[in-house]
C-alpha cells in the first residue's frame, strides 16, 4: 500500500477538546493572542493565532499547549524569549484575557 502515511497532521485538535471540557466544568476561559517569530513561524506556519485557555493558566502552560498543537515547537522550547504584552515574563505569570504572548527564538543569520 502506498497511501498509509498521512497520520502526522491529525492530533492538532486535542487541545480544543480539553478546552471545551474545562468550560463544561464551569470554569471561565480567557482568550489570548499568540505571536510567532522567526523559526516559530516556520514551525507553525503562521505569524499569530488566538488561543483559548482556562482562567489561571500560566505563560508556561500556554507554551505547553502550543507544543501539543504544534509538536515542532519542541525544537525551540529551551531557546526562546517568551514575552507577555511586549515584556519579559517568567513562565509562572498567569495570562489574562486579551494578553499577547510572543514566542521569539533567536535569529543568527546576517
Amino acid at each position: 500500500m502506498t497511501f498509509g502515511f498521512k497520520i502526522l497532521s491529525t492530533p492538532i485538535y486535542t487541545g480544543e477538546n480539553m478546552d471545551s471540557k474545562e468550560e463544561g466544568n464551569g470554569s471561565k476561559s480567557v482568550e489570548i493572542k499568540v505571536l510567532f517569530f522567526a523559526r516559530a513561524r516556520d514551525l507553525t506556519g503562521m505569524t499569530h493565532m488566538p488561543l483559548e485557555v482556562s482562567q489561571g493558566t500560566t505563560a508556561h502552560d500556554c507554551l505547553n499547549r502550543l507544543i501539543v498543537k504544534f509538536p515542532g515547537l519542541e525544537e525551540i522550547r529551551n531557546c526562546m524569549v517568551l514575552a507577555l504584552n511586549e515584556e519579559y515574563a517568567p513562565g509562572s505569570t498567569v495570562v489574562k484575557d486579551r494578553d499577547e504572548l510572543a514566542i521569539i527564538p533567536p535569529i543568527s543569520g546576517g
Binding site: 523559526r39 525544537e75 525551540i76 531557546c79 543569520g109 546576517g110
Partner: peptide
C-alpha cells in the same frame, strides 16, 4: 542570560539556505 541553552542545529538557519 537570554539564551543559556543553544538552539538545536535544526533551528539554526542560514541565509545561504533560507534566503534573506
Amino acid at each position: 542570560c537570554l539564551f543559556p541553552t543553544p538552539p538545536p542545529t535544526t533551528a539554526c538557519q542560514r541565509c545561504a539556505d533560507s534566503g534573506v
